[in-house]
């Protein structure tokens, strides 16, 4: 795949949230305003890029040469979890306001399927190291974009009376579902035509 194809695929066509349904919770369950959402989105973007590259290194340099391919799942789970913890620690040390604003806690970032999912996609797609990095960054950008849109919509809904049973998380899921339909305009045929001519 060309660079443009990788970027468009991971950011729009196979959007992490809207197409692969990974990392839905941090986006849909988020509380707080736009700054918190931007924090979560940025956090996830860095995590995804790091995970994709780390996953490439782990898989092609360690697991495959040693013949430990059965241990992929535990290895990847550990990779993502430790990356998340490291990022968390970094944030706690250098960006203390981040934690206050986002309220992201260890379980919530650790239990994040977006990082793990991206490692799995990148390794199963047999991307090279730079390709994994670009894929991770593009996926992160797509994640950031969708989170920002969902938060802006949620902020608008917060001032409106909505049906009681749907208030909050369910409505965020429905919002995400409608957004997913809208984003289906960017399908594989679209990608092929745009890049083909």
């Amino acid at each position: 795949m060309s660079w443009a194809a990788i970027i468009l695929t991971f950011a729009l066509v196979d959007n992490v949230i809207l197409s692969r349904l990974l990392g839905v919770w941090p986006a849909a369950g988020a509380r707080g305003g736009m700054r918190a959402a931007a924090g979560v989105g940025g956090f996830m973007a860095v995590l995804m890029a790091g995970s994709a590259v780390g996953g490439w290194a782990l898989d092609s340099q360690v697991l495959v040469p040693l013949g430990f391919t059965l241990l992929r799942t535990p290895a990847f789970v550990f990779l993502v979890a430790s990356l998340a913890l490291a990022l968390q620690a970094f944030n706690g040390r250098f960006l203390p306001s981040f934690l206050r604003v986002t309220g992201v806690s260890i379980p919530e970032i650790g239990i994040n399927t977006a990082g793990l999912g991206l490692v799995l996609i990148a390794t199963r797609g047999e991307y090279s190291a730079p390709e994994s990095l670009v894929a991770g960054l593009a996926a992160g950008a797509g994640y950031f974009l969708v989170t920002a849109m969902m938060t802006a919509i949620r902020e608008r809904l917060e001032v409106e009376p909505v049906p009681r049973a749907l208030k909050g998380f369910p409505l965020q899921l429905i919002t995400a579902g409608l957004m997913a339909y809208a984003f289906m305009a960017f399908d594989r045929a679209f990608l092929a035509r745009v890049l083909g001519g």
Partner: peptide, 14 residues
């Protein structure tokens, strides 16, 4: 889905 789930006229974002 698009309108009433969000509370009816004026509240739907789509």
């Amino acid at each position: 889905v698009v309108k009433q789930s969000f509370g009816g006229l004026g509240r739907n974002w789509m």
